[in-house]
Simulated assay, not measured.
Amino acid sequence: MADVKLEIQMLHDRVLVRISPEDGERRSSGGIVIPSTAQMAKRLSWGDVHGIGTHVRHVKVGDRVLFNPDDQLEVEVHGQTYLVMRERDVHATATEQTDQGTGLYL
């Protein structure tokens, strides 16, 4: 039973998000490395959507979303940490546009 992979289906207006790895350590414009543990002003994070509930209307799996990570619940699935949030807690979405050009658009 330990080798069985379960499929996660989110309910209602819930969104399953994995925080993007680049939200960790970053570099200032002057080249100074700022660790992810540095205390800064309240900061929003980007994450990738891995699951959505049946009542989610504006977000789809594969989108990048902007949200406040401090107000979310964490869950571990198959050794990966994800956040569970309501769709209304998402501030913005970014989707890859391949039919009209390249890049990431807000």
Rank of each mutant, 00 (worst) to 15 (best):
M1D: 07
M1A: 13
M1Q: 02
A2N: 09
V4L: 11
V4D: 06
L6Y: 06
L6S: 04
L6V: 13
L6Q: 10
L6E: 10
E7H: 06
Q9C: 06
Q9D: 11
M10P: 00
M10N: 04
L11I: 08
H12V: 10
R14Q: 14
L16G: 10
L16S: 14
V17W: 00
S20N: 13
S20M: 06
P21Q: 12
P21K: 08
E22Y: 12
E22C: 07
E22T: 13
G24V: 04
G24F: 01
G24D: 09
E25A: 06
E25C: 06
R26Y: 09
R27Y: 10
S29K: 14
G30V: 05
G30A: 15
I32A: 13
I32E: 15
I32V: 14
I32N: 08
V33P: 07
I34M: 14
P35E: 15
S36W: 00
Q39Y: 02
Q39H: 04
M40P: 01
M40D: 04
A41W: 00
R43H: 11
R43V: 14
R43W: 01
L44H: 04
L44G: 01
S45G: 00
S45W: 02
W46S: 07
G47A: 03
G47P: 09
V49E: 07
H50L: 06
H50R: 13
H50V: 06
G51T: 11
I52Y: 03
I52W: 02
R57Q: 14
R57N: 13
R57D: 11
R57V: 14
H58T: 11
V61F: 00
G62S: 07
R64P: 01
R64H: 13
V65W: 02
L66H: 04
F67T: 06
F67I: 05
F67H: 02
P69E: 10
P69C: 04
D71Q: 12
D71H: 10
L73R: 14
V75H: 00
E76K: 12
H78N: 15
G79W: 05
G79H: 05
Q80C: 09
T81W: 01
T81E: 11
L83Y: 06
V84N: 03
M85I: 11
M85G: 05
R86K: 12
R88W: 00
R88V: 12
R88A: 13
V90K: 00
V90R: 00
V90E: 04
A92K: 14
T95P: 00
E96A: 12
E96Y: 08
Q97D: 15
Q97T: 13
Q97Y: 02
Q97K: 11
Q97G: 07
T98N: 10
T98S: 11
T98Q: 12
D99T: 08
D99I: 10
Q100M: 07
Q100H: 07
G101F: 01
G101K: 08
L106A: 10
L106F: 13
